[in-house]
Structure formats: C-alpha cells, structure tokens
Design a protein around this nucleic acid. Structure first.
Length: 185
DNA sequence: CGCATTTGACCAGCGC
DNA sequence: GCGCTGGTCAAATGCG
C-alpha cells in the first residue's frame, strides 16, 4: 500500500511548520496535527522515531496540489469507502483528489482558511460519532470535506477533503489569532 | 430579514 | 430484487 503524506491545507504553514510537533495554538484551544494519513481505511500511526522522521520528510515535500493523481488512484483503487459513487473519478471522468488526515483536537471545526457550508450530518455504521458534510461556499468551487471523530479515539478528528479549490484562500483568520497574509517579504 | 444550520427524506451503489 | 449504507437535497428552523 502506498502512502501519501500531504499537507491538506493550501498554506504550507498551516498545521505544522518544519517540525511536525510544532503546535499552533490559540487562547481557545490546542491543536496537534498527527502524523497520520488514512488511505485504504487504514490508520498508520508513526509513533516510532524512524517512521516519524520519514513522515515529516514526506510532509515537507508534498503539498495538496502535488498529489499525483494516477498514483492516488492506485493507492485508493481498492478502497470502496473512499470512492465516489462513480469510483474515484468524477462524473466527467476527471480525477477527484481525496485527502484524509487525522488531527488531535477538542474541536471539530478547524479554520483552514476556506469558508465552508454545512449541508449534512449522518451517523455512520461502526462509529457512534456523527459525520458532518461540508461544501466550499465559494461560487463554482465543488470541494467537499467530511469531518468526523475517530471511532476508536474521540480525541481525534478525521477530516477528508475531496477535490481541489479553484480559487484562492479567502484569508480570514486562523485560530482567532494566527493570520496568514500574502507578504512581499 | 438574511444567512447558516439542522434534519428527515430521498437517491444511488453495493452485497447478498 | 431487496435491504443496508453513505451521500445529498431542501424545507424548516435558529440566530445574529
């Protein structure tokens, strides 16, 4: 099984810096991005130092938009849970990148810079926690995300992004305090 | 009043 | 074909 460590956030500074254990925090909550990526419905937990360093390296190299779509298909080809109704491809045959990651957070709604509109909530099998469905509220942008708590450890939040934003980040604020701005510096 | 959220209904895919 | 399940829709509701 191939693993892809990606930064689901378009801003590479979001969630982690050059160190995975970097913890952005605000006055209201604390957030730790785990060294997890879920594909094939399997959680890989890199607790050992060697794996961790590898994951960090990978995370620094790969960003959301860099996902090789063919490789992504290979990695998800036998995963029914992550497929669209028509497979991983969209209605027109285009490939829809799908990224899942797990974060340790007390809150489920994490401000990733984009504006999301909630359109559904479901209880899913094998998970007593509810799954929330969001769409990017930007006009013409079809990116979706699902947010649910880990069935085994509710202190973790599993977020799945589907699709790629076709617009820039609205640039609101992150965590109330942290704000990323385009800078000429 | 406008917008976001909630929530039940509906639909499609899949396995048996 | 049928039932289960996940995903989406849209009317109702809540909130600022």
């Amino acid at each position: 099984m191939d693993l892809y460590f990606v930064n689901p956030h378009p801003n590479p500074n979001f969630g982690y810096s050059t160190h995975m254990n970097h913890v952005p925090s605000s006055s209201s909550h604390e957030f730790i991005l785990s060294e997890y990526l879920m594909l094939d419905d399997i959680c890989i937990d890199h607790h050992d130092q060697e794996s961790r360093s590898q994951s960090i390296e990978s995370l620094e190299k790969v960003t959301f938009n860099d996902v090789n779509q063919e490789e992504f298909n290979d990695a998800t080809s036998n995963n029914n849970n992550l497929k669209n109704k028509n497979g991983i491809k969209g209605k027109k045959g285009e490939v829809v990148p799908k990224i899942a990651f797990r974060t340790r957070s007390e809150i489920e709604i994490m401000d990733d810079g984009y504006k999301w509109r909630k359109y559904g909530k479901k209880s899913v099998k094998n998970n007593h926690n509810l799954r929330n469905y969001y769409k990017c509220s930007s006009v013409g942008c079809n990116v979706k995300k699902r947010v649910e708590r880990d069935r085994d450890d509710s202190s973790y939040v599993i977020t799945t992004y589907e699709g790629v934003h076709n617009h820039d980040i609205p640039f609101t604020s992150y965590y109330g305090q942290i704000s990323f701005q385009h800078s000429n510096a």
